[in-house]
Design a protein around this nucleic acid. Structure first.
Lengths: 149, 149
DNA sequence: ATAAACCTTAGACTAGACTCTAATGTCAAG
DNA sequence: CTTGACATTAGAGTCTAGTCTAAGGTTTAT
């Protein structure tokens, strides 16, 4: 199949497929007489492998490592793959934790504000941003008084 | 205070402070005779305001909006600020959800693999990446048999 | 034979938030 | 009076992962 068909089958754009090739990730197993990229079913599998890896959060570089393991399994050991997975789990957990902290702060920010058409003169959001730090573990000391608005 | 001191007080680098100025976010209230930026306590407050907003996940552009509300509160209404906050909450929730999906997939990936020094010939991680899609809501059909390894 | 739809390449551009460089000027201390 | 730490500017570079363009060549159907 040609690149357009591969794009359809894989859910990636032709641009992206050529970009991946430039990055050394995937390449067509053959070329037609007119120099068109011709992909096999195995190529499609490889592309899907890449897409799945990306969807799980692996970077193109990490995907490259997986691909090289996949290309010559006996030359590699399980630990290599598992280390990558564990590292990624750690990274994703970190990020989720950070975002949950943000979310907590954002809810405090949002909840304090009436959100109406009142003048922002005493807007709690602006006040909280003026006096609160996100780093704290607890006790975001919202400036006293005012309550909503 | 000069920019180096502001950097220390705010936890941002001098580079970043100048960059924020170029982006139109913060500027020194005065300049010395030798053209050095001279910052006031109010400037420090503004910079901290920016940093806190950033820490909560707002983009520089969004921070700019908050700053303009803060600069002339009576000219704005609470809704403007609250809308931004709510939108950000939505975005962060979305991202957390995505990452939790990844995490689930990653755990399945990792748990299936022994992670030892065994050859990767039958490595479950590579197998799962070959046959599993992250998009599915449930039932990541790990290829049958093999179990660990 | 000609238009539509496909393919090729190198290389530029995008986003967001910095981060750094070069070349130069200023200031405080010893 | 020199050294070192600080400051200035414009502008380039970094990172990741694409995304797009220009200028052409090929294939397929009508």
């Amino acid at each position: 199949m040609k690149i357009g068909e591969l794009a359809k089958q894989s859910g990636l754009s032709t641009h992206t497929l050529r970009f991946y090739e430039k990055q050394g990730l995937i390449r067509a197993s053959t070329r037609s007489e007119s120099n068109y990229r011709i992909y096999s079913q195995a190529d499609l599998s490889a592309v899907r492998f890449v897409k799945r890896s990306r969807d799980m959060g692996f970077s193109l570089e990490e995907v490259g490592v997986f691909l090289s393991i996949r290309a010559d399994k006996p030359a590699h050991v399980c630990r290599e793959a598992k280390d990558l997975a564990q590292q990624k789990i750690f990274e994703v957990e970190q990020k989720i934790h950070e975002m949950q902290q943000m979310l907590t702060a954002l809810h405090k920010l949002s909840d304090a504000c009436c959100g109406g058409n009142e003048s922002a003169e005493f807007c709690s959001i602006i006040e909280v941003l003026d006096y609160t730090s996100v780093e704290q573990d607890e006790g975001y000391s919202v400036p006293a008084g005012k309550g909503k608005a």
